[in-house]
Amino acid sequence: MAALMQMLMEELVEEILLRLPPEDIASLLRASLVCKIWQRILSGRSFRRRYSEFHQKPPMLGFICNVFSVNHGYIARFVPTAPSSLSHANRPGWRAVNAHHGLVLLNRMPRHYSPRDNEFMVWDPMIGEQWELPKLPLDSVPSYKKPSVWNMSMLCAAGTTCNNLRCHPGGPFLVVFVGFNFNHSKMFTCVYSSQAGTWNHLNSFDRTVPLAPSVLAGNALYLSFPNTSYVEVLKYNTDTHGIDREHDGPDRDARWEQSRVIELETLLPAADDRCLTSTDMIMLGFTEGANVIYLRRNSTLFTFDLKSNLATKVYEAREIYNAVPYMAFYTPALGVASTSQ
């Protein structure tokens, strides 16, 4: 047979490869070995960008499980939900705070001490790279006024049009720190830019501690406060590179409403553990827009689809204390990897 398909112009080969499903990263990897041209297309930056634009929602590739064992201390461990080379990716001495678009924010967990609120690292398990952040500029704050609870999120620094960090692998990112001090009703914000390599000025203002969890939508973090209808929106300002507080007062239209109640006990597979109580069940997180929540019951991780009411067991390990869902686009970069080594 004439090798017609081999004669297809690269533009059309790209159209075909774009349509490989993002959750099937093995197929993408195998396709990159078909010939040099396919390999070049798949490992190219423009393909990576087009691929994430085409599929829009990055697929769930796994969890970063936070594990503690007496022998090894704290470990952030990647647990894939699909076949992947990352099954043994570990970061001992760290725990995952959250993950956005393929990057994981880690907090240092020394073996015999409490977590270091100051020490953070951003990890890209797909390419095995990590970036340690400088310490938060909290020196000027007296210790009794320092934030006692905090939350961090990551944004893409490429601009407001981009909400996908993976289209700029190893590229610029921002880390937004929001901290609170219970006793002094103070809120702190600070932004780290990977381009500048520094944290910007620490802002503090009066605010009680909000209800957890906060919701990140685009470049904005939504916080709601206990016993009020107050919602505060913290938005990253791409011009000033600081944080704008958009709503500074009660928002009459914004409030949480209960949409439904789910009887998980009857929907999850029967537990083989002894003595199960409702306190053994913990919600770990959810995927924006995908109607999937993540649960831990005792030592087992589940995904739960809110549309189909289907629970799927993902992973079981006695030492898990929480986990962060990991979603990312993966495009094979065989040629790229070998030139950067």
């Binding site: 090798a3 081999q6 010939c35």
Partner: peptide, 17 residues
């Protein structure tokens, strides 16, 4: 047609030499 195949199977499927 490519999905789930090895590089060699893809080559055969698409009639590559």
């Amino acid at each position: 047609m490519i999905k789930g195949k090895s590089p060699m199977e893809i080559r055969r499927t698409l009639g590559f030499p």
